[in-house]
Design a protein around this nucleic acid. Structure first.
Lengths: 338, 338
DNA sequence: CTGTTAGCGCGTTCAT
DNA sequence: ATGAACGCGCTAACAG
């Protein structure tokens, strides 16, 4: 590939000033029709693209957005959730001429948010933070950097901050109600750690449904929401603390799939002996055995809103924080037994 | 957060010149012990970090690496493969002070590689291209940009270019041989589109094993290597073209899992009626029903080498291209029936 | 409508 | 050992 052309070189080539070309490049007024066309043609001919560092230096805009996730230690369970959201967000950002810098941070790295170079280096214009398992302090540190932040699938409880979530509470309420309507009375909720937004909301939705039906709540707070915690805590429940249950509402599909797997190990038939339902509708929900009844979250639409919001914030950082809640829908498959 | 400090401001604060601080920042000689310490302390105190755009402009290094993948249209099946590699690569790069710009390109976007702004904008220092389903022209275009390129899980057939792969051929040879040793004689290979590196290699491995045993090859080239193509092509084979088979070697786990799913739909028992094996050892291989016998690829180690190589290339772009082949290992579970 | 000029914040000569 | 001056490539303010 030929050497990159600088603005100056192109200007010399055309016998115009750099400002003229700059004006044309940025679609600004103040250039005659004839000159503009001449410049446009040359830009195409020489395949001229402005140097992003120089532009950033001048404009203080990088054209990069950081997409931050938490790295889990356990078996990767939400992989397709991760992939679908990251791919969608990246592509949507790219359509609008932004690049995506992806990072997976473990808990330790989030402790030292001051280490996050990007923040001080001015390498990005804004942050998308994905998932519930992020420490509030980390989020606030980022927010205090002055750059726009939008949360995806999470909300801060004390501080108002832009966020995009699905109907966690209502979705779980609906699916729990579905089980109740099919005659279940002893329903266990496998929840995640207290304090995670989605977990708390979904737990509340479960409780809403049970309370409405006058049934007794049975809740277990797991240490995480993975296949493995699903297996472990379900086994413990069925063998010791809650042998009487006829249905399990899992806080997410990964947990539910862990339950399915463990049930198989224990010789418990799903849905004949126990009904199992999840939340998220990850790809594997349709491939598990039996296929999982769950709540579908519209990740793509959540992503779309996240990005629109972030870009709005980029234009006007003083917008008042908003919370965006996207609908969910119930997906009936086999694991609920109806 | 306080306003960012510029080099000049920090210099004024300390009554030294910007050059002195720059020297300290970049660990260069020519600064007295006492001054150096004083500067070091101030850097810490004011939390000074140099502006990345300005630095890039001056040094022509961005500190960004592009990680490119192909976006598939079908159900996402290799999600955890994707996630594991991207997370690992990103974290490993970050350890070495690089940021990762991730992009998922569809076929159309790869056609117009000239559109890839990054390339001309000088937004990245190098490229990692992940997966086999990438058009050679796209790779060559990138390579011709003059920036270092390393392929991950792919190889160019005509042009020498740095690449990191696993033992695709030998791995498939081994697992096929395993089936043969357990008495299978009519073994079908579900392959991907011709021309994809991994697919072709694995097919060759299958053929090696069959030839060695004096058995007849049965190969189907699918249009892609997903759960859905696995389902479709397996069904077609079992019902029409190859009803006699007793075992299926799938080109990857996604395909194998599609076969498992379709077998269940058709009332065919695995492994009793038909043995099924895959390749990759994605997380779901251990969770499918029955758990999948497969070939484990060491993604993390592949990622590590990819990065080391890319960084070496960054230092010396004239290194001779090298191909790195990482070992695989056979993982025996239930689906092969032994 | 167009060109000249002055930085953006940094690294790197070249003097001292 | 230190500092002054220059320029990386671009945009924007000011002249003309």
């Amino acid at each position: 590939m030929a050497e990159r052309l600088s603005l100056q070189e192109l200007a010399d080539e055309l016998n115009v000033s750099t400002s003229t070309i700059s004006r044309v490049m940025n679609d600004k007024p103040g250039v005659g029709e004839k000159t503009r066309n001449r410049v446009l043609k040359a830009i195409k001919k020489y395949n001229y693209v402005s140097n992003s560092s120089a532009r950033s230096l001048k404009t203080s805009k990088t054209g990069n957005i950081a997409l931050l996730s938490r790295k889990r230690k356990e078996r990767l369970i939400s992989a397709d959730y991760f992939q679908r959201s990251i791919i969608y967000i990246e592509r949507e950002l790219r359509k609008r001429s932004y690049h995506t810098i992806a990072m997976s941070l473990d808990d330790e790295e989030m402790e030292n948010s001051s280490d996050l170079l990007m923040l001080k280096e001015k390498r990005v214009d804004g942050f998308i933070i994905r998932g519930p398992a992020i420490k509030p302090k980390f989020i606030l540190d980022l927010k205090n950097s002055g750059l726009p932040v939008v949360l995806f699938g999470n909300e801060l409880k004390q501080t108002e901050i832009d966020c995009v979530v699905c109907q966690d509470r209502k979705g779980t309420y609906n699916i729990t109600k579905h089980l109740i309507e099919h005659g279940h009375k002893k329903i266990l909720f496998l929840s995640g750690p207290e304090g995670w937004y989605t977990t708390d909301e979904r737990k509340a939705g479960y409780s809403d449904a049970l309370k409405e039906a006058g049934l007794t709540s049975r809740i277990i707070n797991m240490t995480d929401t993975t296949i493995d915690t699903g297996k472990t805590f379900f086994k413990e429940a069925i063998k010791n603390t809650h042998p009487e249950i006829t249905a399990v509402v899992a806080v997410n599909d990964s947990t539910a799939i862990g339950v399915l797997d463990e049930a198989r190990c224990l010789g418990i038939k799903v849905p004949e002996d126990i009904a199992v339902v999840g939340f998220d509708d990850i790809t594997w929900a349709s491939l598990s055995y039996p296929p999982l009844t769950t709540v579908h979250a519209f990740l793509e639409e959540m992503g779309k809103i996240t990005i629109s919001r972030l870009l709005d914030l980029l234009e006007d950082p003083n917008l008042h924080p908003a919370k965006h809640i996207i609908t969910t829908s119930l997906v009936i498959r086999k694991s609920c037994g109806c």
